[in-house]
Computed example of a mutant assay.
Amino acid sequence: TELTTELTTELNARKKQYNYYRDQLLSFEEGEVEWKTLGELAENLDSKRKPITSGLREAGEIPYYGASGIVDYVKDYIFDGDFLLVSEDGANLLARNTPIAFSISGKTWVNNHAHVLKFETYAERRYVEYYLNSIDLTPYISGAAQPKLNKKNMESIRIPNPSPEEKERIVSILDKFHALTSSLSEGLPREIDLRQKQYEYYRDLLLSFPKPDTEAAA
């Protein structure tokens, strides 16, 4: 319908606007700031990961994470705190249909398809998360049929490293944009669904009116 098209167009426009501002905030000239590798900025906790085949998982309420997010819910946990997960393998490394870096909090379990990184502050973690999701990672990815971002390549990714205050400023702005676009992403499809149901209700109501010849026969 026309409304669906209008709302979808609005959502896409807001996403493009967000991506534009994000890229502007995260763009630095080579000599403008110090650059560091991801391995220098984060503590890698990959050695603590533990995959469990689906048949052996004990159902529970703890999120069980894989390369692109929550895969299942289990009874136990191996991590407790705030971490950044970075996809290690999968087609999404190239397709980028969903973020390849995403934050997790609280008690969690992570399998061996996502790297686990720990940072000293919230701003550090979120800054790297935003940056990784904004750049082309193709030079660091190996394998065409089975794309993989191994630990060595991931830790060699160069990241601009402005002052802690500047990182906090950038993250504060991007968090606000992210909250807005997330709200739109969730709200607009719901709005479209409601409008569709409203349309169907009135359509069915109109179609249920008795026809003139039916009334005459009665």
Rank of each mutant, 00 (worst) to 15 (best):
I135H: 04
R49S: 05
L26F: 04
E30H: 06
I170H: 04
L132A: 14
K211H: 07
V74N: 14
V116S: 13
E186Y: 12
E191C: 09
F83D: 03
A67Q: 13
L93M: 10
Q198Y: 10
K50I: 03
Y127M: 00
R158L: 06
D80Y: 07
E30F: 03
P51Y: 14
D46I: 13
E186H: 14
E10T: 11
K152Q: 14
D46V: 14
D72I: 10
N150K: 06
Q198V: 09
S183V: 05
I100S: 10
A179C: 11
L7E: 00
E43N: 10
S105L: 12
L56V: 00
E168C: 09
F209K: 10
I159S: 03
T108N: 15
P147W: 03
L188G: 10
Y18W: 01
E155D: 12
G55A: 02
P189H: 06
P99K: 05
P63H: 07
E168H: 08
L180A: 13
I62S: 07
E29G: 15
Y20E: 02
P99Y: 07
P51T: 12
N161A: 12
A216K: 14
Q24I: 05
L205T: 00
T108S: 15
P210V: 04
A123D: 11
S68R: 14
L184S: 04
E166Y: 09
K48G: 09
H178M: 15
I173M: 11
E186T: 15
L194E: 05
Q146S: 03
V171A: 08
E166V: 14
K176W: 05
D23N: 14
I141N: 02
R96P: 03
D136V: 07
T98G: 05
A145T: 15
R203L: 12
L11N: 07
L25I: 01
A13K: 09
A13N: 04
Q17T: 07
E120C: 07
A42R: 07
A59F: 08
E129F: 03
G69T: 00
F28H: 09
N19P: 00
G187M: 05
Y20W: 07
E58F: 05
E165T: 02
E88S: 02
S105M: 12
P212M: 08
K176R: 15
E2L: 09
L180E: 12
F83K: 00
I52R: 11
V110P: 00
I192V: 01
R125K: 15
N12D: 07
N92K: 11
N111E: 08
E32K: 03
I192P: 04
I192H: 01
L45W: 11
L180V: 15
L93G: 08
P160I: 08
N19W: 02
I104C: 06
L3F: 05
K211R: 10
H178R: 15
